[in-house]
């Protein structure tokens, strides 16, 4: 790795030195193409974020694609019902790597106000890996932009080789996530144990 001090010094003299990773990630992070779909009221805020007042285009993420084949960012904007969950997972599987997921709003993160209901999935992270979770009900457009910037920071810092390489660069990690089936009482399986490992329970103060 190049010494940061030397790098800054060279930059002052008009010589820009960067690793391939940095350039590659810089390109990727500034042209995220979100998948164009909304599930509930959060989608309205997502639309507002994309529209003129907040203008997601300033961050290079304005090209909403109507096909998962052309998208690399999935914004789960809204309540994921159990009836909808298999379709969301299938759309995720259809997106090409590298791909990222933003869980927008309380419902997408955990089920939100519908957590104790019978028909709402208690968080999309039960089935697909979530990179950024944006709390709110719904989050304001500024919050979605903040989440997008956080995701860009994450992308910029991703390693493509070595032991700490990104998920998509890890060939051992299967890109396909099992699509749950409609069961007689619940989705089967109710979660993907490979990616959903909640923290062990603890009481306040422990």
């Amino acid at each position: 790795m190049l010494d940061e001090e030397l790098k800054a010094d060279l930059q002052k003299r008009g010589i820009f030195v960067a690793s391939f990773e940095d350039l590659y990630n810089w390109g990727r992070k500034n042209s995220l193409w979100p998948l164009q779909f909304g599930l509930a009221c959060c989608a309205i805020e997502m639309i507002a974020t994309a529209a003129a007042r907040f203008d997601m285009a300033r961050f290079g993420a304005e090209v909403f694609r109507p096909s998962p084949r052309q998208a690399d960012l999935m914004i789960i904007a809204g309540t994921v019902t159990k009836k909808m969950a298999p379709l969301v997972v299938r759309l995720y599987n259809q997106m090409p790597e590298p791909k990222y997921v933003i869980a927008m709003g309380a419902c997408a993160i955990s089920g939100g106000p519908f957590k104790e209901g019978y028909n709402v999935l208690k968080g999309i992270d039960r089935y697909i890996p979530v990179d950024v979770a944006i709390p709110g009900c719904p989050p304001r457009p500024e919050a979605l932009l903040e989440g997008l910037i956080k995701l860009q920071e994450k992308i910029q810092g991703q390693r493509l080789f070595g032991p700490h390489r990104a998920r998509h660069a890890d060939t051992d990690d299967a890109a396909d996530y099992p699509v749950p089936a409609y069961g007689a009482h619940d989705l089967e399986p109710a979660l993907n144990p490979r990616i959903f490992r909640p923290d062990p329970p603890r009481r306040a103060g422990e």
């Binding site: 019978y118 409609y182 619940d186």
Partner: peptide, 25 residues
């Protein structure tokens, strides 16, 4: 509203939702 394979009728008083609690603080 529910999928065709669903067997229960969730608004009945004796319906028990599936036990899928998770992490609670």
């Amino acid at each position: 509203l529910m999928w065709d394979e669903f067997a229960d009728h969730p608004m009945r008083k004796d319906y028990n939702p599936p036990d899928d609690f998770e992490y609670e603080p």
